[in-house]
Design a protein around this nucleic acid. Structure first.
Lengths: 104, 104
DNA sequence: ATAATATGAAACCTTTCAGTTTCTCTTTAT
DNA sequence: ATAAAGAGAAACTGAAAGGTTTCATATTAT
């Protein structure tokens, strides 16, 4: 299932950090690597996993590969989350309240 | 960081499935195990990880331990997600549209 | 042409993870 | 009192994850 690849991708703190970084614009592998204390191949692997999860797209430009955030893929997570909205205490309290109001 | 424990917890499909199951009410370890094709200790480990992520609370009742969903812990994920809202194409389009409307 | 830059890819290592089996403990039912 | 049910914990296994080093390839700059 491809949904799993998104959850997998966002499970790692380094990858979430990369996502934040890419939110301000396209970056090359070297650029991204400079911001982390790990080797280039390690970062490249993280980017691959982000790509597999659909969270990042790559564009080739000369000898560089520019990575761009693809936040639409987060919709999967968002939808999963929304299922649980109805079970939040606050929501339940609100619902309870409105039910009580209906009684009056 | 405790935030990481939530992301870790929801990364596994079995654990997400357990969460869905618990959304309909408290369940004992044996109950939950019956719904999966794995041994009881395996499920117990998943429940521990969910507990570490704050997503599940346990209540002791007799010889049973009843597990209850604690969906408030998902707020962490929800807030993380919301940061990326502004980068969604749709949102950007909407924003752009409202800006254009302001010009008129 | 040659050197430097940017990256891909393979091989390897170590740790974590998901799962099992086995044993023990506590609580209830007979 | 004894047996059965529910669960915790430890030891082990295989696979996946995160990382490194090393080598090869494509593109740009001198």
């Amino acid at each position: 299932m491809t949904q799993q690849l998104v959850f997998r991708a966002i499970a790692d703190p380094t990858r979430r950090s990369i996502m934040t970084m890419l939110s301000s614009g396209e970056r090359s592998l070297s650029d991204i690597t400079a911001a982390f204390e790990m080797t280039r191949p390690a970062v490249a692997k993280h980017l691959n996993i982000l790509r597999e999860g659909g969270l990042v797209r790559v564009r080739k430009q000369g000898r560089e590969r520019l990575h761009r955030l693809q936040p639409e893929a987060l919709k999967t997570v968002s939808e999963w989350l929304s299922f649980f909205d109805q079970f939040w205490d606050e929501k339940l309290a609100n619902l309870k309240q409105s039910v009580e109001m209906d009684d009056e």
